[in-house]
Design a protein around this nucleic acid. Structure first.
Lengths: 146, 146
DNA sequence: GGCATATAGTTAGTTATGCAACTAATTTCA
DNA sequence: TGAAATTAGTTGCATAACTAACTATATGCC
């Protein structure tokens, strides 16, 4: 398979420079417009805690595809904003369970609505089959590299 | 169109958290393994200068989808490493033309080869039609948001 | 000509990421 | 049991991102 068959350098530029950045920037902007002070990275952590509360930091690493120092500092900032609390695990004293505060629980519906609106805006004119292909490709890429 | 028709929150996670990050990380690692000291962000700037040398910083903003402060600091670091030089434009004294040094020109073939190999690795099992769909979707997303 | 506006680039402050090195607690296994 | 290896989390350092505010130059228009 020749290297330039798919113009892969170009695809790399597209993946990393353009669409994902544009979506992230728009979502951040929409949060700010709604008066929310959280970053999209913080939101992505909260998103996983809304699905299942009181995860360990390691589990948050796995689910958000971040490394441990990144999660440590995201949790630091979320704790400063009183959106999560670190609670020591009883069964394993190495582990911090990261649990939502009431303030964070109150943000769930609004922020997810904003994220859905943003994705609707971003995906106008894109059909379900195309989205399925994108998801399949990204899963393959991830599997190929890990 | 109902919000959850495409599980868009999930797609957002995929786009931003998983595959693009995995590709970026692998490419950075492959650069390091080859003894190259440049970051992938610096490489993406060089990539556009290899295609057309001596662009203004603003033009680099447009082509790399970065904002002006980001380009300022990327050029600062590339200049420290003696890979580019800022040259004042004669026709417009506000403009810096960013030009490659010989050292940067020497990196072109090797780094592009590494990027192609990385994309081959990432895209194993992905066919051309699927890649075309991904590119189309990302272009639509970008157009929708800008 | 001269003032308002727009454009190119820089700087400051905050957040986030990656890597490497570190501490503390737990598990493995000889 | 106890030393070695593993796992969870933190810290330090460098790079990069966004926003907002700033300087300097150029353009538009009366």
């Amino acid at each position: 398979m020749p290297n330039n068959q798919f113009k892969r350098g170009e695809l790399y530029s597209v993946i990393n420079g353009m669409a994902s950045t544009a979506v992230a920037r728009r979502l951040q902007k929409n949060f700010r417009t709604a008066g929310l002070e959280i970053t999209i990275e913080q939101w992505s952590v909260l998103y996983h805690l809304w699905k299942e509360d009181c995860l360990s930091q390691q589990e948050l690493c796995n689910r958000t595809f971040r490394d441990k120092p990144s999660i440590t500092r995201l949790i630091d900032n979320l704790e400063k904003q009183k959106l999560v609390k670190r609670i020591a695990s009883r069964s394993d004293r190495r582990i911090n369970l990261v649990c939502l505060t009431d303030a964070a629980k109150a943000l769930q519906d609004l922020t997810i609505e904003i994220a859905n609106q943003t994705m609707n805006e971003a995906l106008t004119g894109v059909n379900k089959d195309e989205i399925d292909v994108v998801k399949t490709v990204f899963q393959k890429v991830y599997d190929n590299l890990t």
